[in-house]
Amino acid sequence: MTMNLADTFIDIHDVTVAYDKRPVLWDVDCQLPAGKLIAIIGPNGAGKTTLLKAIMGLVPLISGEVRIHGEPVDRVRKRIAYVPQRESVDWTFPVNVLDVVLMGRYGHLPLFRRPVQLDLEIAHQALERVGLKDFSKRQISQLSGGQQQRVFLARALAQEPDLYLMDEPFSGVDIATEDKIIQVLEQLRNEGKTVILVHHDLQTVQSRFDWVVMVNMRKIASGPTEEVFTSENLNTTFGAQLNILSKVADLSKQSGIIRHNRRV
């Protein structure tokens, strides 16, 4: 389970995150390798999304740091694609599918500059790759949930990153979409890209993912699936033995002792 430091792609070191002064992740340490399909699993409210956001630098850290290839996130933003939960955006927003996918190119454009022909081509290729070639002019509210999720994946592909961070890309999607997404993710992995996603379907973990991170307010395990996806670890992750941790978290909120050491 221990990794040679040279293999470490993402180094999460002693990360603690709190919302509204209530800690949701405690002192998480883990090193993740490059070129793998990695699942973050854990029960509801365990801090899975928070861990993903912490990697992307979207939440202020109480303590610790995240380094990607030895660099702070701010210096490697262009090489990371973040895909939020589908429900986090307003799908009645007045844009069409191509508009959304083109947003994936924004990170490569200087501030205030518009996309050019090359960006359009990349966006169209991304749409083709997720099987939505004929949907580019479709208003996003007319898409099914699965199609919306594929639009998000296409936007991430258009970013041409090395690292994909995806929050529950399989939630509420049809089988065709699930197959398509997993097919694209496997291709990405075979191209040497790294994909980390928050996952909630335990049954598919073993068949799909190379590496598993199990969290429940703290890290339970992180390692190759065949090594750490054990019933013992699952019991610890999903069992009800966290009472003390969450009680202390509540107390911390009441007393307001936590001060954020930096704002992101």
């Binding site: 973040y82 307003d90 947003m103 924004y106 990170g107 205030f112 936007r155």
Partner: peptide, 22 residues
Amino acid sequence: VLAYKELRVRSFDPQFAQSLGY
């Protein structure tokens, strides 16, 4: 006119905009 793309992505998907550093 200048900041159209930034304003648009911030309005549509704030988390994604944040991940871009916007």
